[in-house]
Design a protein around this nucleic acid. Structure first.
Lengths: 160, 160
DNA sequence: GGATACACGTGAGAC
DNA sequence: TGTCTCACGTGTATC
């Protein structure tokens, strides 16, 4: 009530409103795309909606990246050395299972057999009974550039 | 000014404030985790911050998911030890391109094929003589398992 | 007893 | 025209 205090109170309250509006309109609305209505209620509503959308999207992406592995099977193209000529043909049969959704290797796999690789947990499964543990790969990779040791499945001869 | 109008105005304004507060405290703050300060300014600030975080996280996930898998295909060249004994000789030729920094895998590769991987830019180039930065691979391996694109190199036939 | 945060009623601008 | 939205100053509660 006292004028001196009253003036102060007014100023303080004015600052407070200013701060809220600043964050309201400038900061919050700036991170929300497609905001048409600029009144406070709408901004809050859209902000809430947007946050929910983002959270869902993240869950999807995270789930997709981990669980969705089966969908995104990695295709491994196996180029068999040694068999000149005839071998290639025979090779084809075993590896033909290129079921993976993954991007294909461009040109290379034309005449090459493919091996389907699936990720299970931390290990990579390669076709017939081969398993490569990520650890194993990592261990080798960590040693600077590395030749990666992987098991190559051969139809007849099981690598491991 | 008229009392009748004034009353109405009061009611309307009251409703408006109610709606804003509803969305403010109940809706918006409910989707923001770890919200301690419950005053309006803080809620707005944290909301903005949270949205930014989510957006960044999504970008990371999307980038990782897309580039890591499609664009940045990792090619692994598998050198088959040309089947049994004699093969070794033939193998030599194929692997001769192991120009990459490649340390060879120690003992393991005795009967196992070797894979050489090389990273170029954001993509891994395989085949003969390619080099992979361990960093890149490690990064991917660390981020859960990622689809590795691998191809097996054949000696005579250069994959690419 | 000062500082902080809020709800209220009210006047005014925008469409 | 009324309807909507906002900013303002003020009273009040909580720490």
């Amino acid at each position: 009530m006292a004028p001196s205090y009253g003036q102060d109170h007014i100023i303080v309250e004015r600052k407070r409103r200013e701060k809220i509006n600043q964050r309201f309109i400038i900061e919050l609305s700036s991170v929300i795309p497609g905001l048409k209505k600029m009144n406070k209620a709408s901004i809050l509503y859209d902000a809430t909606r947007h946050v929910k959308e983002l959270q869902e999207k993240i869950k999807e992406l995270e789930a997709g990246g981990r669980n969705g592995r089966s969908n995104e099977t990695v295709v491994v193209v196996v180029k068999r050395p040694c068999l000149h000529g005839a071998a290639a043909a025979s090779d084809g049969d075993g590896s033909s299972l290129s079921a993976s959704s993954g991007t294909r290797t461009p040109a290379a796999n034309k005449q090459l057999p493919e091996i389907e690789v699936q990720f299970s947990d931390k290990s990579v499964m390669v076709e017939e009974g081969f398993t490569i543990t990520a650890e194993d790969i990592a261990r080798r990779l960590n040693s600077v550039l590395l030749p990666v040791h992987s098991s190559c499945s051969s139809p007849d001869e099981t690598g491991k």
